[in-house]
Simulated assay, not measured.
Amino acid sequence: MKKICMLCWVVLCSLQLCAQDEGVRFQGLAFQEALNKAKAENKLVFMDCYTSWCGPCKYMLNTVFVLPEIGAFFNDQFVNVKYDMEKGEGPWLRGKFHVNSYPTFLILRPDGTLQHRIVGSRPAKDFLECVKRGAKAETSQFYLDQLYRQGKLEKQQLVSYHAALRDAKRNAELKHVTGEEFKQLSDDERCLARYWYIYDQEDISPEDERFVYMLAHKTVFDEQIGKEIVDKRIYDNYFQKLTATKSNVSVSVLIALIKRQIASVDFEKKEEISLSLRYVEARNNLDIDAMLDLLEKRVRDLPRPFLWQVPFLDFILGKGNKQQVARYMALENKMIEAMDNETMKKAVKETFIKYRSAQN
């Protein structure tokens, strides 16, 4: 019986070791030791920069790094290490490599220079593509950055450079690079499908000349790219800009611009953008009657980011007259019905209890 138990234990341990070998093998090395080992083995260093409280970091560790296909590539190409950025060498490494968000993944040469940076978690397939770009010198950020700064980046290398910038979430630089590229294209080229990446970026605002051009030539873009894709990009750009607004003078300018633009172009979910515009304009202008009219008729139709603000419009309670405050308080049940989860329904109830208590 003891022999059988011992045999089972050995088999179990073997299976556990095999399972561990299937994924990425992170080695417990100090930073300099990792560089030394990479040099001796003619490899690169893959460094996972994480924190103990980072949810996406845990997702990568428990979902992506355990996969056999990921482990096969990483264990062959890299000396794999991971460091908590708040412990041990972590704070020093965080400062040395300017790690500002988590998770961040660095591909380093044996001399300690940065070859490629990947910021944020990704599904396994997408992540592996990012890492393969970074492992290959001629598609890495280090190499392409140098060519770009020297003015030697060739046209066929631009796609690789855009991908490298997206890997590192260097969105401002990507916007600048593609903006310069846009200026160099002829009118015939600007609408071609192969240049859609110039427009397909979250950071391009309604004021950007590329966005204005896309609207002016929407029919052509619909034919080249597909109406559904173009409509989604227009909607996403407007929606992102409107949900990020805070009350100030520049918001009035933005609202006026978007109103002019959407008056002459049609796209899917245009009505939702029009409704969002009305909400943002009323909030920005502290126009209580306009806000109440909107909420009384369309509160259920508001997109979630605005709907979740509705129970907390303090300017109505602080600046409104008795009739306006009463109209706002009468909206409680409509707000509760409009909320799509129990947490927000409860928050509305609790907030309005406080409002009524303050009035008494």
Rank of each mutant, 00 (worst) to 15 (best):
D187K: 13
Y195R: 07
V212L: 14
D208C: 10
L275A: 12
Q261S: 12
V253M: 02
D222Y: 12
E281L: 01
A216Q: 15
T219R: 13
W196T: 05
L257E: 08
P206C: 11
N248C: 15
D266H: 13
F211K: 04
I273E: 02
L254R: 06
Y199D: 00
I262M: 09
S250N: 15
S276P: 06
V251K: 09
A282R: 04
E271M: 05
L277T: 09
R190C: 09
Q184I: 00
K218E: 02
D203T: 15
K227R: 14
L242T: 00
A256G: 02
W196M: 08
L275M: 14
L275R: 12
Y199K: 01
K218F: 00
A263D: 15
L254P: 03
L215S: 04
I255M: 06
V280H: 03
K227S: 09
G226A: 05
I273H: 07
K218Q: 13
E228D: 11
K218N: 05
C191M: 10
L242C: 02
Y279H: 04
F221S: 01
E202C: 02
S274R: 14
S205P: 00
I225D: 01
L277A: 11
K241I: 11
F221H: 08
E207W: 12
D187S: 09
E223F: 03
Q201W: 01
L192P: 00
A216D: 12
E272M: 13
Y235F: 15
S276F: 01
A290M: 06
K259I: 03
E272D: 09
N237R: 11
Y195M: 06
K269G: 02
V249E: 15
K232A: 14
K246D: 12
E268R: 10
A216L: 09
V253K: 08
Q240M: 10
K227W: 00
R190Y: 10
P206I: 09
S186K: 13
L242W: 02
R260W: 02
P206T: 10
D236P: 02
F211P: 01
L277P: 07
K246E: 13
F267Q: 12
D289R: 13
K232V: 05
Q261L: 11
E271N: 09
S186R: 13
E281H: 01
D236H: 11
W196Q: 02
I288G: 03
V253L: 02
S205A: 10
T245I: 13
E268P: 00
R194H: 14
A290H: 08
R278T: 07
G226F: 00
V251G: 10
G226V: 02
I225G: 01
V230R: 07
M291A: 12
I204D: 01
L286C: 05
S264I: 09
I262C: 10
K241H: 13
D231R: 05
N237E: 04
Y235I: 04
S186A: 14
Q184N: 15
R233A: 07
